[in-house]
Design a protein around this nucleic acid. Sequence first.
DNA 1: CAGCATCCAGAAGGATACTG
DNA 2: CAGTATCCTTCTGGATGCTG
Lengths: 117, 117
Amino acid sequence: MELPPNVLSQSCASRRYLALVASKWSLLVINALDDGPARNSFLMRKVGGISQKILTQTLRDLAAASLVSREDHGTLPPHVTYRLTPLGQSFRREVRSLIAWVEGNMPALRGAEPDQH
Amino acid sequence: MELPPNVLSQSCASRRYLALVASKWSLLVINALDDGPARNSFLMRKVGGISQKILTQTLRDLAAASLVSREDHGTLPPHVTYRLTPLGQSFRREVRSLIAWVEGNMPALRGAEPDQH
DNA sequence: CAGCATCCAGAAGGATACTG
DNA sequence: CAGTATCCTTCTGGATGCTG
């Protein structure tokens, strides 16, 4: 007798992972990752406006959820690469679709500028 | 000579709408909305854990982006309903897909609990 | 019933300096 | 180059009480 996951339920564990989805920086980093390995500095340049601190934190969170894997080549100067896991690649398809929707619907979304509170 | 929207660019206006996407409460409210009209109290009950303040704020933001429409029946006691616009329904498809992914991949995501910082 | 105003604790995140 | 540490500001959002 086990209930299926349901994000609308406050107590459902899926809420925890939704937080990962509903994070601006996670979405952008996932979107920036291609199939090959990517380095810290590369991602810093690719994701406009992200800080070193946030990038590191985001990558750690994504790695903890096993969406990306981290490989430290142990050289000096350091050479560390990040790569999407198969699960991460599956997730990236969702993210890309969402982002494509936003970019594609910019004309419709314009005209009604969102409040800034 | 106009560039296409690109969320990876810090200055792109699409970033503003991405914030709407990358919001836990927006995703849950959109997900909770069916095709018919929905009332405040109904949404409060359906979206577990949301407060009155946040629900109102979220609905206002979604309305400002013309994803939902607000209809005040002008009666007393007040009767106000919210409804997805066609644009909102299109968006809901994306959201549902994303949420289905999260719920469907719970088994894979478990095992690697995300950090709480 | 819908929603606004106020207060406030905690989280997010930017800037900067430093280290192996 | 990759990452940590510290400080500090801004934003998020919960709680409560009030109004037409």
